[in-house]
Design a protein around this nucleic acid. Structure first.
Length: 279
DNA sequence: AGCCAGGAAGAAT
DNA sequence: ATTCTTCATGGC
C-alpha cells in the first residue's frame, strides 16, 4: 500500500486497503472513539501511552500523531493487503466477507494491553469490555494531557483484587490480579522469538487466558497469522456453513488447517462480516 | 424479564 | 484427556 510520512502526518494514498471503520470495528481493538462531526467522521485511536487521530483526506485518510513510526507499525502499513485478499478470495466462503470488509488491517498492538484487554473480553460483550477498560484507563493510567494511557503492569500491581471488581470486571477480577504478577511487557516481548505453538502454551499458562484469548493475543499483538480465534460467533458460523460440531478445539484445528498461515486474516474478514449481519 | 456476550477455571467423569 | 458447571455484570 502506498503511504508517505510528512512530519506528524501519515498520508494514506489508497482508499481500498485502509478503511478506519473496518479496521477499528472488526473487534480487534477496544480503545478508540468515533467522533461524528458535522461534515465527516474522525477517529481517535489509543494504544499504550500513544494516540493517533484519523481524519478524512479527500476520499482517503491521513493519520495525525506524535509518533508516526509507532503507528506505521501499528497499522501494519508495510503489509500488502491487496495480494493477501487476492489469495484468500480463492476460498468461496471468504469472497463476500472480503468484499464487505476490504479495508481491514490487522493491528500490531501493545502486548500487555492486548493481553489485559482480551482477558476482560472473555464471555463479555464489546460495549461492556469498552466500559471496563475505559474505567481501567481513567483510574490507573498515566495522564497524558488530553487522554489517559493504558495502565502499565507496574501501575496495575499497585491495586488489590477488589479494585478490579469495582471497575466492573466481575469474576475476571482475580484473573487480572494474578496475571499482572506473572508477566509484564518485557517478558511478553521476550516471547516474540518463540514459535507459535510454544508461545501459545506460555500464554495459556497465564491466569484468565485460555485457547481463545491466547489466539487473540497471538493475532492482534504478536502478529501471528497462523491462528484462528474461535469464539461464539465463529462457532455459530461454523455450525451453519461447515458442519455441526460442538468441540471448539476441533473447529479451530479444521479452520487453521484450511487457511494455514493466513488463518488470522481469514478469521477477521469472517468475524466482521457475520457480526455486521446481526445488526 | 430474561438471555447473552470475542470463555476460562475447576470439578467431575 | 474430554465434558459439565459455575462464574459478575451490563447490553439489548
Amino acid at each position: 500500500m502506498n503511504y508517505c510520512i510528512k512530519g506528524n502526518t501519515i498520508e494514506i494514498s489508497d482508499n481500498e486497503d485502509f478503511v478506519p471503520a473496518h479496521i477499528l470495528e472488526c473487534g480487534q481493538i477496544f480503545s478508540y472513539e468515533r467522533v461524528s462531526d458535522a461534515s465527516q467522521d474522525r477517529w481517535l485511536v489509543f494504544s499504550a501511552d500513544k494516540k493517533a487521530e484519523i481524519v478524512p483526506n479527500g476520499d482517503r485518510f491521513k493519520i495525525l500523531t506524535d509518533d508516526t513510526k509507532y503507528f506505521e507499525n501499528f497499522f501494519d502499513l508495510q503489509t500488502d493487503y491487496s495480494s493477501l485478499k487476492k489469495k484468500l478470495s480463492k476460498f468461496e466462503i471468504l469472497k463476500e466477507p472480503i468484499k464487505f470488509g476490504h479495508g481491514i488491517r490487522i493491528l500490531k498492538q501493545n502486548l500487555f494491553e492486548t493481553l489485559i484487554s482480551f482477558i476482560v473480553s472473555a464471555n463479555n460483550n464489546i460495549k461492556r469490555i469498552q466500559l471496563i477498560l475505559g474505567r481501567l484507563r481513567e483510574q490507573l493510567g498515566t495522564n497524558m494531557g488530553d487522554f489517559r494511557a493504558f495502565p502499565t503492569q507496574k501501575q496495575m500491581l499497585a491495586v488489590d483484587e477488589n479494585f478490579f471488581k469495582e471497575i466492573g470486571a466481575g469474576y475476571r477480577a482475580p484473573y487480572l490480579y494474578k496475571v499482572v504478577r506473572q508477566v509484564d511487557e518485557n517478558t511478553l516481548q521476550d516471547w516474540q522469538t518463540l514459535p507459535t505453538r510454544e508461545l501459545r502454551n506460555k500464554l495459556i499458562s497465564l491466569a484468565g487466558v485460555g485457547p481463545k484469548v491466547a489466539d487473540c493475543v497471538l493475532l492482534f499483538g504478536f502478529g501471528r497469522g497462523d491462528v484462528f480465534p474461535v469464539d461464539t460467533w465463529i462457532h455459530q458460523m461454523y455450525n451453519k456453513f461447515y458442519a455441526p460440531l460442538e468441540n471448539r478445539e476441533k473447529i479451530r484445528a479444521n479452520l487453521t488447517k484450511e487457511f494455514g498461515q493466513n488463518s488470522g486474516y481469514a478469521q477477521q474478514y469472517l468475524f466482521f462480516f457475520i457480526r455486521s449481519g446481526e445488526k
